[in-house]
Computed example of a mutant assay.
Amino acid sequence: MTASLGIRTFSDEQLLRITRLFAGNDDLLTRVDPDATERVRIELDTTAYLEVWLMVWPSGTTTGWHDHGGASGAFHVVRGGLTQETWRGGRLTESDLREGDEYSFTPGLVHNMTNIGDDLALTVHAYSPGLSEMTPHVWRAGRPEPIIT
């Protein structure tokens, strides 16, 4: 048996390029229910070392505080506007993201994203390796704390 010769790890720039590639697909909008009332995750592609998702964000929807376990990731805003709150090094930062904006992150990032617009927002996300774990967090005593079950 021989080992796979495919790419097993992806750099931040490679993940961003993947999100741009998928975000530029003209057929992307045909996968979206414009009347969605809850956040929806649509699988676009999956390999043993990479997952690509389209996220549909109705107005006001949010992820809640979470991390992505051991996965690195990136996302590209296809449409709409979102706010991302991140907790890193004991500091809370907030960023407004609009169409065309993109962001990459390493494992361990704790963040929360919310559609701040009145219309549907769309984002394309890539994760490497795939999302085998995601830990929800709760905001407590001025910081996010993991919810351990």
Results as ranks from 00 to 15, higher is better:
residue 107 P to A: 07
residue 122 L to G: 01
residue 78 V to I: 13
residue 75 F to H: 06
residue 93 T to R: 13
residue 98 R to Y: 09
residue 85 E to A: 14
residue 76 H to W: 03
residue 123 T to N: 06
residue 86 T to R: 07
residue 90 G to M: 08
residue 108 G to M: 08
residue 102 E to L: 15
residue 78 V to M: 10
residue 109 L to C: 06
residue 76 H to N: 12
residue 118 D to S: 13
residue 95 S to V: 12
residue 116 I to N: 02
residue 109 L to F: 03
residue 110 V to K: 02
residue 92 L to C: 11
residue 82 L to T: 05
residue 105 F to Y: 08
residue 98 R to H: 12
residue 87 W to S: 07
residue 119 D to Q: 13
residue 77 V to S: 03
residue 108 G to C: 09
residue 96 D to G: 09
residue 120 L to E: 02
residue 77 V to H: 02
residue 95 S to G: 06
residue 99 E to Q: 15
residue 123 T to G: 04
residue 101 D to W: 03
residue 116 I to R: 04
residue 123 T to C: 11
residue 92 L to P: 04
residue 93 T to C: 11
residue 121 A to E: 04
residue 84 Q to K: 11
residue 122 L to Q: 03
residue 105 F to W: 07
residue 89 G to M: 07
residue 80 G to Q: 06
residue 75 F to G: 09
residue 79 R to S: 12
residue 100 G to M: 09
residue 83 T to E: 15
residue 102 E to D: 15
residue 114 T to S: 10
residue 78 V to K: 04
residue 85 E to I: 10
residue 83 T to P: 01
residue 77 V to G: 00
residue 103 Y to P: 00
residue 121 A to W: 01
residue 117 G to Y: 02
residue 102 E to V: 11
residue 79 R to V: 07
residue 105 F to K: 04
residue 97 L to E: 03
residue 93 T to L: 13
residue 108 G to E: 07
residue 122 L to H: 01
residue 121 A to Q: 03
residue 117 G to H: 05
residue 99 E to P: 06
residue 94 E to I: 12
residue 103 Y to A: 12
residue 80 G to R: 03
